[in-house]
Design a protein around this nucleic acid. Structure first.
Length: 182
DNA sequence: CAAATGATAGGC
DNA sequence: CCTATCATTTGT
């Protein structure tokens, strides 16, 4: 499988979010290789996007978002679940793409239809915070040639973000059963 | 609909 | 320093 290059992430966040659909998330754990196909993403912009952690400036938690593209931003939410993002665009922007759902491909146990569940099933924890996605044990890989239709919807669970909550920054593969409900 | 559960951002 | 809040999930 072909690893995605740094250049892939160094582009407009909305484009990266859409093109991430269908690609593979690969995590080597000891002698296992866990692989999931990305079926749902959300774009989190830098600057004024109130739904993004980066909208209130750089903090101890989100500073990795302001770094160079192609790194993982993993954080704990609601005290019990991890969420994983990939950093996009140039250093200093603070943008990224949240991986919301995966289709299990290999060595995956449990459900993957939701940001918290998928991290659990993939074995993603905060030890992968700031991890380079071009490394050998944790990376994203190119998709096979199989076409699908992309649906655009408002993001989920970000009602507090005012008008930003209604923007069409959530993307998923049409008719894929592994996309999260709601 | 509410609880579980802990890091953290922002107010004091 | 304190505490309301949160890019969630599950069960009643």
């Amino acid at each position: 499988m072909k690893k995605l290059s740094r250049d892939f992430y160094d582009r407009d966040t909305k484009e990266v979010a859409q093109e991430l659909l269908g690609k593979y998330l690969v995590h080597h754990i000891e002698d296992q290789i866990r692989i999931g196909r990305i079926v749902e993403t959300e774009a989190y912009l830098g600057g004024k996007d109130l739904a993004s952690h980066s909208s209130r400036g750089m903090t101890e938690r989100n500073k990795i978002m302001f770094g160079p593209p192609g790194y993982a931003y993993v954080y704990l939410i609601y005290g019990m679940y991890y969420c994983m993002n990939t950093i996009t665009e140039k250093e200093g922007i603070g943008a990224g793409v949240l991986i919301r759902a995966l289709e299990p491909i290999q060595d995956i146990e449990g459900r993957t239809q939701g940001p918290g569940l998928l991290c659990n099933a993939m074995g993603i924890t905060k030890q992968l915070y700031g991890h380079d996605l071009l490394s050998d044990n944790f990376y994203l890989a190119e998709k096979e040639n199989d076409p699908f239709k992309i649906i655009k919807r408002p993001r989920i669970g970000v009602d507090y973000a005012g008008k930003w909550a209604q923007k069409l920054l959530r993307f998923y593969i049409k008719d894929n059963p592994f996309v999260s409900k709601r």
